[in-house]
Computed example of a mutant assay.
Amino acid sequence: MINPIYSPDSSRYDNGMKYRRCGRSGILLPEISLGLWHNFGDVNTFANSQAMAHHAFDKGITHFDLANNYGPSYGSAEETFGMIMKKSFMPYRDELFISTKAGHDMWPGPYGEWGSRKYLMTSLNQSLRRMNLDYVDIFYSHRYDPDTPLEETLQTLVDIVRQGKALYVGISKYPKAAAEFAYRYLAERDVHCLLYQGRYNIFNREPEEEGILQQAKENGTGFIAFSPLAQGLLTNRYLNGIPDDSRIAKGGFLKKEALTDETLKKIKALNEVATQRGQTLAEMALAWLLKDDMVTSVIIGASSVAQLDDNLQSIKNTKFTAEELEKINQIDSLK
């Protein structure tokens, strides 16, 4: 049976999604972006991956966030997205904002990770082929390389834009001093740093504590948050133990040691605040990130259309009272 040609929801921009200005740029990003780190690899069912991508676009999510080594296996998330592009998204390419990155381990040998010109250029060329794209909308240096001269990494980003392989560039997880150098270096070459991507959630406040958020704002750079639910801790998944199908049970990046008695106490207290707000804990955690204009967009992961829908509920109420924010801060500081 031949699959019917995909036709997106004609009201996709009227379904409640809100868009935020990305620093000092012409780009608007949806408050919720879809990340393909998990659940889009070759170990996953293509039909489910495709259904989630279609549903996301139908709901006004225009930004799809990838990286060269997303999967598993490495590269397979980009291959999956490339099949979705070919089968259904290609007519809507100009409505999509697609990112990829390079910096972490991708292939064996001395040229398969970090920030050299050879690695970044080669990786992006591979990513474009896997995704069936001529260009990406933004290409990130996925992590700061302490050994490669930063000028080499950043000049490669400049040249990638000038070659037309990316419209914009960004940096991910850079320490503050390196980020400041990057902002200045890129600006001096008329290639604005569009986005800083960082880990940020109620349990991890480093972007605000280290001044990364304010630094990005002062440089006209947007901030996009990943791991907004602390890999599932900021959900109701672990309120009553560890489910068999959870990330902790499967032995992934989230380890059993992360769910300490102290953390579980915090999760339960935060869940009470969320209930009082008429939200799930996950909805409140996402809304908390969007409570002001310091965050441009939040990258969520999803394993099903239903879970994606649940997370989208968060944008319905991103306003917090001073009392609610104080309560959340008090809970997070509990020992």
Rank of each mutant, 00 (worst) to 15 (best):
Y6I: 07
P8V: 02
D9P: 00
S11A: 15
Y13K: 07
Y13L: 13
Y13C: 00
Y13N: 09
G16D: 02
M17S: 04
G23N: 07
R24D: 14
I27E: 07
L28H: 09
E31C: 14
G35Y: 03
G35T: 01
L36W: 06
W37M: 12
F40D: 06
A47F: 08
S49V: 04
Q50V: 05
A53D: 00
H55R: 15
F57C: 05
F57Q: 05
K59A: 11
H63K: 06
Y70Q: 07
T80Y: 09
G82M: 02
K86N: 11
K86T: 09
F89D: 02
F89G: 02
P91N: 04
F97C: 03
S99W: 01
G103M: 00
M106N: 13
M106K: 04
P110M: 03
E113H: 15
L120F: 00
M121T: 10
M121N: 06
S123R: 00
S123E: 14
N132H: 13
D134S: 13
Y135M: 08
D137I: 11
I138D: 05
S141N: 14
S141I: 02
S141F: 03
H142N: 04
R143F: 11
Y144A: 09
Y144I: 02
D145W: 07
P146N: 10
L150A: 11
L157S: 10
D159Y: 11
Q163E: 14
Q163A: 15
Y168K: 07
V169Y: 08
G170M: 10
S172I: 06
K173A: 12
Y174P: 00
K176N: 13
A179T: 05
A182Q: 11
R184S: 14
R189P: 01
V191N: 12
H192L: 10
C193S: 13
C193G: 09
Y196Q: 13
N201R: 09
N204R: 09
G211L: 10
A216Q: 12
A216P: 06
K217N: 12
K217C: 05
G220T: 11
G220Y: 12
F223E: 03
A225R: 09
F226H: 15
F226T: 12
F226E: 06
S227G: 05
L229C: 14
A230M: 12
L234E: 02
L234M: 10
T235M: 13
N236K: 15
N236Q: 14
N236R: 14
R237P: 03
I242A: 06
I242N: 10
D244T: 03
D244Y: 00
D245C: 00
A249Q: 07
A249C: 03
F253S: 11
K255N: 05
K255F: 03
K256D: 05
E257N: 07
A258R: 15
L259C: 10
L259F: 10
T260H: 11
T260W: 13
T260Y: 09
D261M: 08
D261S: 12
E262C: 11
L264Q: 15
K266L: 13
K268C: 11
A269S: 08
N271D: 13
E272W: 01
V273Y: 03
Q276A: 15
R277M: 15
R277Y: 00
Q279N: 05
T280H: 07
A282P: 10
E283H: 02
E283N: 08
M284R: 04
K291I: 06
M294S: 13
V295Y: 15
V298I: 10
L308V: 05
L308W: 08
D309T: 01
N311L: 08
K316N: 07
N317T: 00
N329I: 00
L334W: 06
